[in-house]
Amino acid sequence: MQVHLTLFGQLADITGRTEMILHDIPDTETLIKTLNEMFPSLANAKYAMALNKKVIKENTILTGDNNIALLPPFSGG
């Protein structure tokens, strides 16, 4: 499955990009594993994941349109 990934805040700094297209990703667990291999610093980063603008916490099978966003916490005020 194809995934259109959007990265926010320091995650964009780690990966050097705000958007990415990944292929052959069957589920979100594989997505995380693939990203951690591509960008080792991501493995320690904390973030929330949204699939088609809804937050998800558990491994989710990807079908059809897969717009995934990774959002880190911000602390500035």
């Binding site: 904390k46 937050v55 880190p72 916490p73 911000f74 602390s75 500035g76």
Partner: peptide, 20 residues
């Protein structure tokens, strides 16, 4: 519910460190 765990020290920069 959004961020169950606090990030580790230095993982997220504050305004002083990162600028705004």
């Amino acid at each position: 519910d959004l961020f169950p765990q606090a990030p580790a020290d230095g993982e997220v920069l504050n305004c002083e460190e990162a600028g705004v």
